[in-house]
Amino acid sequence: MASKLTANGVYEGSRIILPEHREAYVKAMSEQERRGKPVLDEQELQLIEDVLMESFHEHTTVTLTVFNPFDDEVLRGVVTAIDKPNRRIKLVRGAEDYSWPKIEEIIKASI
């Protein structure tokens, strides 16, 4: 006669995962996918600043790639304001759609 404690008995077959444990596991797995921010050289930083200033003065549309630890975000719009103390820009994407990406988080910019 087999014991209920082994070989998929009562205790073996009644395993459950608490929601708190599942959330902790999912969070730990997502943290493993986190990546570091790339280091940009001075020339690339100067190019990004030139593109931002051109969009600000000429009102041209720019495409920005903003760093995110999990997946980079691509934004298109016109730079309408530059907040120097906080080092961020106002990027208008539509009539009422805008965002304030930080200049340090921009890893690529093109017109």
Rank of each mutant, 00 (worst) to 15 (best):
E44M: 12
V10S: 11
V74I: 09
V92P: 01
N86S: 15
L18D: 11
N68Y: 02
Y11W: 08
Q32M: 15
Y98I: 04
E31M: 12
N86I: 10
T63H: 10
P101H: 04
I16T: 14
G94T: 04
L52Y: 08
R35H: 13
V26S: 06
R34P: 10
P101R: 01
D72K: 00
E23R: 12
H21R: 15
D41I: 04
V62T: 03
S99M: 01
Y98N: 12
A24D: 14
I17H: 08
V51A: 06
M1K: 09
L47N: 13
V79S: 01
I48H: 03
S55L: 00
K90T: 14
L47Y: 10
K37S: 08
I107H: 04
L40V: 04
V62W: 03
V26P: 06
A2S: 09
G9M: 01
R87F: 07
K27C: 11
L18Y: 00
M1Q: 10
M29D: 11
V10Q: 07
A7V: 13
N86W: 09
P19H: 02
D41R: 02
S110W: 09
D72R: 01
R76A: 06
N86D: 14
F56G: 05
S55W: 01
E44I: 11
P19R: 04
R87L: 12
Q46H: 05
D50G: 15
E58R: 07
H21I: 13
G9N: 00
I48W: 03
S3W: 00
E49S: 15
G9E: 02
I111Y: 14
N86A: 13
L18C: 07
L75E: 02
A28K: 15
D41A: 07
A24P: 07
A7E: 14
L18P: 08
A28Q: 15
G36N: 09
L64K: 01
E104V: 11
V10G: 07
I111K: 14
E33I: 12
D71K: 13
H57M: 10
D83R: 02
V74K: 07
R88M: 07
S3A: 09
L40Y: 00
A24M: 12
I106Y: 00
E104N: 15
S3F: 04
A109C: 07
Y11G: 07
G9Q: 02
L47V: 12
F56N: 05
E104T: 14
I82H: 02
S14E: 10
L64A: 02
V62F: 01
H21K: 15
N68G: 05
I89C: 01
S3P: 06
Y25R: 12
L91R: 03
N8T: 05
A2G: 08
R15M: 11
W100G: 05
N68L: 04
T63L: 10
V10L: 13
Q43E: 14
D72A: 00
A2F: 05
I17A: 13
N8V: 05
S14I: 06
R76W: 04
V51E: 05
